[in-house]
Simulated assay, not measured.
Amino acid sequence: MTPEQLALRDAVRGLLDKHSDVRAAIETPRGYDEDLWGRLCGIGVLPIPERYGGSGAGLPETHVALGELGRTLTPAPLLSSTLAARALLATGDEDACGRLLPRIADGVVAALVWPWDNRETTVDGTARYVLDGDLAEILLLADGVSLYEIDLGEPGVTREHTPAMDPTRRLATVHLAGATATRLGPWSPEVRDIALAALSAEQVGAAARALELTVEHTKTRVQFGRPIGSFQALKHRMADLHVLVETARSAALAATGEVAAAVAKVYCSEAFFQVAAEMVQLHGGIAITWEHDAHLYLKRAHGSAQLFGSPRDHLRRLSP
């Protein structure tokens, strides 16, 4: 990373160390700490150009922040707002960007309903598993051809929180009944690649922290008169996990373009799940208790693997 990106990483990590409380956040009605989200936006983690009120951060800087949020499993609408912002920028609609992007840069939550099969002006149907869809003040919809803005003030738009296995990820069901969709411009397929790359960065951050916590535990957990981390079999297992995390990091950093982004999604999903599963195993019985965070990492690994398409979906899509 560049010196600027390292400074951003340190700033985000320091902020999260002081203010992030994942358990308190998921128990709030909104599912995240609004004050912390405002502080993150103040640091400038969203990829919004300066002419629209942003910090000028690019996707690499956003990925740094997502990696830090992944480390602590901090619930924050960075991923959903990033995708909405990039989809808006890709339309080339200056009026829409000038109207909506400054609000997103100020911390207004934006959500993207994608993919959507209905291509009529009046929208009817239901979208499930929409990131932060019930909390968003800006709701965009993509049908694979165009990007639309949904008027949230219409009675035909209803949204509800969808409880999921992973309590640290806010998902929603969006019901549209005769809602009017305003076309903003063309949909860019690159947004899918941006989504996969961004998610991969978050997965790597979470996997790295899960391994760190596991190594720390094996240094202090004593069995047969010695720390369990001194046993050769466990050393080998943790060494293998280290290799998994670092190769996943390389895949995430190289996730530019359709193929590389899909490869990162597949590899990082599988690596994170394996690290989280080993975390549970190596922590023993404590790992399945609510008081310990191991089960939260395992749930995040399972849920993120299915987000934006499962690894099997992407392997099938890229197969000749």
Results as ranks from 00 to 15, higher is better:
I26P: 12
F231G: 03
G153I: 00
G144K: 03
A207H: 01
R86Y: 07
L234Y: 15
A287V: 15
R86F: 02
G185A: 02
G185F: 06
T182N: 08
T256S: 14
E137F: 08
S200C: 09
S55Y: 05
A87C: 12
R128C: 05
A255W: 04
A57K: 01
L59P: 06
R209P: 12
G156E: 13
Y297E: 01
R317L: 09
V222D: 07
A195V: 05
A255D: 15
E202N: 12
A262P: 07
A177W: 06
R99H: 08
E190D: 15
T91F: 14
L131W: 01
G133C: 04
P75V: 00
C97M: 04
G303K: 03
A177I: 09
I228S: 15
A287F: 12
T122I: 03
L139N: 09
K265S: 14
G153H: 00
S319H: 11
G285T: 15
T289C: 04
L244H: 12
K219Q: 15
K219S: 15
G125Q: 09
V259T: 12
A198G: 12
L296I: 07
H283F: 14
E34F: 10
V191T: 08
T218D: 01
Y52Q: 05
Q281M: 15
L139A: 05
G185E: 02
T289H: 01
A254M: 13
L184F: 08
A239N: 06
E61D: 10
D33I: 09
E190T: 04
T220V: 13
D106T: 10
G54D: 03
V123C: 06
V259R: 00
V113P: 00
G38A: 10
T126C: 05
A261C: 06
P189W: 15
K219C: 09
A201L: 03
K18W: 13
L147C: 05
P3N: 09
A271Q: 05
A262T: 10
S146N: 08
E258T: 13
Y297Q: 03
A142G: 08
L6R: 15
R237N: 14
P3D: 07
E50N: 02
L79K: 03
E270M: 14
A57P: 02
M279L: 11
V108G: 10
A252K: 14
D143T: 06
A260Y: 13
G53D: 08
V108R: 06
D151Y: 09
L141D: 07
E149G: 11
D313M: 14
L196P: 02
L36R: 14
D240P: 02
A208P: 00
L199V: 12
S20Q: 02
